[in-house]
Amino acid sequence: MSDLPQGAAERRIDSAGVVIALALAGLAAVLVWDASQLQSNNPYGMGPHVMPVVIAVGLGILAIGNLVEALRGNLPARESADAKAVWLILGGLALLIAIIGLGGGFIPATTALFVATATAFGRRAILADLAIGFVMTTLIYVAFSRLLTLSLPAGPLERLF
């Protein structure tokens, strides 16, 4: 989040707005490229590439519109962001994905997210939060697997149940 402008936005040219406009134009280009890879194997009516092209044209126009807004500095003012807290939650999400992906199981993964989020919101009692998160996610796990017979990802811990 470090590239976000700090404090009130610049009056004249809004660089973040320019980035948004460029991103939209890029998205439109991807759409057109992807549509060109399709083959129209339906002999009747419209092919699968028509809609992507229509949407790409729309995105292109909107990219110009956003660019104009940004050059005029018409974007709403932004307050500074607490980047550290945002990264902490994103770190928690990354940890969750990693634990699930590596087969660590549902309970450790969601507990990690719980602790990271609580810390981001200013809690400093990591051990207590670990315990709370663990109890809560264990209850969810048991409810899903025992009562509803829906299996959530199981790691070494979950196999004990």
């Binding site: 999400l93 699930i100 992906g101 969601t110 997210l113 602790v115 989020t117 200013g122 809560m136 990802p153």
Partner: peptide, 22 residues
């Protein structure tokens, strides 16, 4: 802190239950 932590756990659980993929 707990409310939002709980919301995020709930939100991800929904996705995990439907499609537990990275």
């Amino acid at each position: 802190p707990w409310l939002y932590a709980g919301i995020l756990v709930f939100a991800t659980t929904g996705t995990i239950a439907a499609k537990p993929s990275v």
